[in-house]
Nucleic acid binder design. Sequence first.
RNA 1: GUGGCGGUAGCUCAGAGGUAGAGUCCCGGAUUGUGAUUCCGGUCGUCGUGGGUUCGAAUCCCAUCCGCCACCCCA
Length: 437
Amino acid sequence: MSTILQALRGMNDILPDEAERWEAYEFVLAAWAKSYGYRPLRTPLVEPTALFRRAIGEVTDIVEKEMYSFTDQLNGDHVSLRPEGTASCVRAVLQHNLLYDGPKRLYYHGPMFRHERPQKGRYRQFHQFGVEALGWLGPDVDAEHILMCARLWEELGIEDLRLEINSLGSAEERAQHRHALLAYFESHAGQLDQDASRRLHSNPLRILDSKNPDMQTLIRGAPMLIDHLGPDSKAHFDAVRGLLTEAGIQATVNSRLVRGLDYYNRTVFEWVSDRLGAQGTVCAGGRYDGLIAQLGGKPAPACGFAIGLERLMALVEDHPPAPTSTEVYVIHQGDEAATVAFAVADEMRRVGMSVILNCGGGSLKTQMRRADASGAVLAVIVGEDELRSGEVTLKPLRAQGEQWRTSRTDYIEQVAELLLGQNEDEQLEDENGRTGS
RNA sequence: GUGGCGGUAGCUCAGAGGUAGAGUCCCGGAUUGUGAUUCCGGUCGUCGUGGGUUCGAAUCCCAUCCGCCACCCCA
């Protein structure tokens, strides 16, 4: 063991059983995003460190202590593995001037990197599916994002996510509130715990989020951000909530909901599960109207959110999508038959069947066992007898019925028929299963 | 990053100073070309790693790595 190198801490291999689930989810999520008019964007995993420092904020935990940052040995560039997707997305949009002909709906997915202490649902390399709408002022887009999440949970059969939403107001309103907050906490400095004292000047908003029971009274008395919202921000927030109510989506306003990235303003939201322990946030996002200008673009509003794929998939572990299975397993005996079997497998694959050709020899019994274990619907046997008569043997492995021999010129049609019949049976079973439960 | 718990066969786990085990999986066989079940046989481990204590360590001690839980924070 000691001589075998391991994956880095908090970075996981996704083995075939799980990887099949991943592919299924990636497919479902991409189709979902597309159905709302979002288009894919792929950006590099490595970006200039400055991008994240400017976008996420210098004093955030992510930038201060969680980024994989290093110096490119060859040219001295300061680069970082991306800790989230929005910064890269905005960078790409600006670099290629994608907003030149109007607003854009975009989605992305892939690995993100944060150097945190791993736990279940929290990894150093984790995966997000992100959705961004750039160029719309809202509140319709804000509501669209929350709505599409709700519909996705329905589609995936997740029923216990609760929605928390808040408004952070504009940058000016936040600054005002920060002032009031600072004054309040400074006048009660004696009641602040260690964490709160530390955050007092770096990020006083975060004090509101403290879980320390001794702090709750103090926090309840603190100035509320929502009371510092101007008429525009208030109208925006009300409009978002109105649209959600119209759509029948229940949201809890959590005035202490604060996102960990500096770029957020106005609407922020989180979908939270109680089944994931301390890592309950499955999906979160909000509006970031200032970021585009902050990164040097022509000012434009935007909002977006990201889903943590590990967390999402942990919620539906009990109902994994069925993996696609092999249809045909080709068995053969003897050198000459091996050549024929090779060609037979190739022929079937070229008409679209998924075929495993037995490799590595083995007795007929052994090969039959492998065929059974492969999940194939049908075994095609090429033995010495078949070779002499120019035939193959077809043996159904799942359905009733005996094996039979057929000529090598027309066996494919019979295989196709058999597979078709099998698929119909499965669909029937599927439907019965669904209506029956 | 802080604190707590854990790591024994590919997998699930028992063993708590005295010869490393069970189930499962995998492999081979049960009269020569056929899957499940059953029966028989077999492989598998530096007991996470490295030190220390001891006549003797999977077992006790220290360090370290990895995982889990809480904090911090977040998807």
